[in-house]
């Protein structure tokens, strides 16, 4: 029990990290896209837990709301919308390039790991992120992120909202265009 209390953060980190990696393996290996999506959902939730461990409570909430709540629903919606049979080609993997792709991925990972182990991280400094202050007042994580987002990063914030708008318009146009192709002469040529 004393061991559990003394090493609480480590134990939580390793459990969450293990589950996140297992979820990632599931995404790549599961045959059925629905299973892949659910295992990706597990990874998202574990990553949200890891955010909490690093004092990013607001981002953990955003991760759960936007990723687990929004993006995953979008994925599952598309999977359910179309016939699952169509989404499941007979061969799950691109057989010819699969071994080479795995080899390339592992090599890239080994290269980066070598670089990380050879280099050295600079020493940490400053006050802990959990204790951000504005005008001498100590703020919670959400409040501090809000101060920074709406003051120092206001312009990027507005730009990214335009990007979202453009993406929304683009997604709608993709849907419309193929619908008009079905009616127009694009279909007759084929």
């Amino acid at each position: 029990m004393a061991f559990l209390v003394a090493h609480f953060t480590q134990i939580v980190f390793y459990v969450l990290a293990l589950l996140a990696v297992l979820g990632g393996i599931g995404v790549v290996t599961f045959k059925n896209p629905v299973h892949s999506a659910l295992s990706l959902l597990g990874t998202f939730l574990m990553v949200a837990g890891l955010f909490v461990l690093r004092h990013a409570e607001f981002l953990a909430a955003v991760q759960v709301l936007v990723y687990a709540g929004g993006i995953m629903v979008l994925f599952l919606f598309v999977i359910m919308l179309v016939n699952v049979k169509k989404l499941q080609p007979e061969a799950v993997f691109l057989s010819a390039q699969a071994p080479m792709a795995v080899l390339a991925g592992v090599l890239v990972g080994a290269l980066v790991a070598f670089g990380l182990l050879a280099g050295k991280l600079a020493a940490a400094g400053g006050v802990p992120a959990a204790l951000q202050t504005v005008d001498g007042k100590v703020l919670g994580n959400t409040e501090a992120v809000g101060w920074l987002l709406y003051r120092q990063y206001l312009v990027p914030f507005e730009v990214v909202s335009v990007v979202l708008l453009v993406a929304m318009v683009g997604a709608i146009v993709f849907g419309l265009k193929s619908a008009s192709l079905d009616r127009g002469e694009g279909r007759a040529e084929r």
């Binding site: 995404v27 993997f93 991925g105 990972g109």
Partner: peptide, 23 residues
């Protein structure tokens, strides 16, 4: 790094467009 490599392998290996997006 582990998650990135898994995603990278998924993008290169999977045939299904939806699974590639998930990776």
């Amino acid at each position: 790094l582990i998650l990135f490599v898994l995603g990278l392998i998924g993008v290169m290996v999977r045939k299904n467009f939806i699974t590639v997006l998930m990776s």
